[in-house]
C-alpha cells in the first residue's frame, strides 16, 4: 500500500490490472468529436522546438483513436479480445517503464485499446503515456473513458483528479477525489490531495478537515504542507 502512495505513473495501472474491469459501456455520446478519421491532428507549430515532429508522432501513435474532451473513441477495426488486451497492456507498461519513449508507449497502449476497447486499464495506461508528452487534455479523455468503463476503479478517478489539478481546476479535482473516497477512502494519498487542492482554492476549513483525515489514515502528506496551511489559517 505504501508503494502506491508514491504515485508512480503506472502504479495505478497495477491496481487497475488487479481489479480488471468486468464490464463497461461503449461510449455513445459522439457530440464534440474532433474531425478526421483517427489520431490526434498534427499541428503546424506549438510550444516546444520539436512540436511539429511530436505532433506527427502523436498522430501516428494514436491512429485508430479519436479524442473528444470526454472520451476516446475507437475508429479502427477492433478484435474485442480481452486476453490480448490484458497481455498488451502489461507489455505496454513494461515498454513505458523501460524504454521511457512517450510515443512508443502511447502506441503500445493504443494497441491494447484496439485489442479490446472495453478494457479500462488500457485507457489508464494510455493516459499515463500521453501525460509523458504533456497531453493533459487527451489524457483526461482517456481517464474519463476508463471511469465510464469501470466506475469502481479508484486509480482512474484519482488520476483524473490529478489531471484536473494540472489544469488548475482545483475544485474539479476535489470532486473527483470525493468520488474516490466514497468507495476507497484509503486509496493512495487522496485525502492529502484534497487538502492541498482545497488550500489552493482558499477553502482552508475543508483543507484542515481533509488534512485531519489524511493524518488519521496515515496517508503521505508532504511535510511542507502543514506549515503552509498554518501560515494562512490556524488549525480549527
Amino acid at each position: 500500500m505504501m508503494k502506491l502512495l508514491e504515485i508512480k505513473p503506472w502504479a495505478g495501472l497495477v491496481v487497475a490490472l488487479i481489479t480488471t474491469a468486468l464490464a463497461g459501456c461503449v461510449p455513445k455520446d459522439n457530440a464534440g468529436l474532433t474531425s478526421g478519421s483517427g489520431g490526434a491532428s498534427p499541428v503546424e507549430d506549438g510550444a516546444s522546438p520539436k512540436s511539429r515532429l511530436e505532433s506527427q508522432r502523436l498522430a501516428d501513435a494514436t491512429r485508430g483513436l479519436r479524442f473528444t474532451r470526454d472520451q476516446v473513441e475507437v475508429t479502427a477495426r477492433t478484435s474485442n479480445d480481452r486476453p490480448a488486451a490484458v497481455a498488451k497492456t502489461a507489455s505496454a507498461v513494461k515498454v513505458m517503464n523501460e524504454r521511457n519513449i512517450w510515443f512508443v508507449a502511447v502506441g503500445a497502449f493504443r494497441d491494447a485499446v484496439l485489442a479490446d476497447p472495453r478494457y479500462a486499464p488500457a485507457y489508464v495506461g494510455l493516459a499515463d503515456a500521453l501525460l509523458m508528452e504533456g497531453k493533459t487534455d487527451l489524457a483526461q479523455a482517456a481517464l474519463r473513458t476508463a471511469v465510464r468503463l469501470d466506475g469502481r476503479d479508484p486509480e482512474a478517478r484519482y488520476r483524473l483528479g490529478l489531471l484536473r489539478q494540472m489544469d488548475s481546476d482545483y475544485a474539479g479535482a476535489v470532486l473527483e477525489w470525493t468520488e474516490v473516497v466514497k468507495f476507497a477512502p484509503d486509496h493512495a494519498d487522496v485525502y492529502a490531495r484534497m487538502a492541498i487542492a482545497s488550500y489552493y482554492a482558499r477553502d482552508y476549513r475543508s483543507a484542515w478537515e481533509y488534512l485531519s483525515q489524511a493524518e488519521a489514515r496515515k496517508q503521505n502528506v508532504p511535510p511542507q504542507f502543514k506549515p503552509m496551511l498554518l501560515e494562512v489559517s490556524p488549525r480549527p
Binding site: Q165, D167, S168
Partner: peptide, 26 residues
C-alpha cells in the same frame, strides 16, 4: 526514492494560468 513531493503539479505542455504569459513551464 522521492526526494520531495510537490504540492501542485502540471504537465509539460501548458502552464494553465500559473504564470504571466503563454509558454510552457515543465
Amino acid at each position: 526514492v522521492r526526494a520531495a513531493t510537490r504540492l501542485d503539479t502540471w504537465g509539460t505542455e501548458f502552464n494553465n494560468g500559473r504564470v504571466p504569459g503563454d509558454y510552457r513551464i515543465p
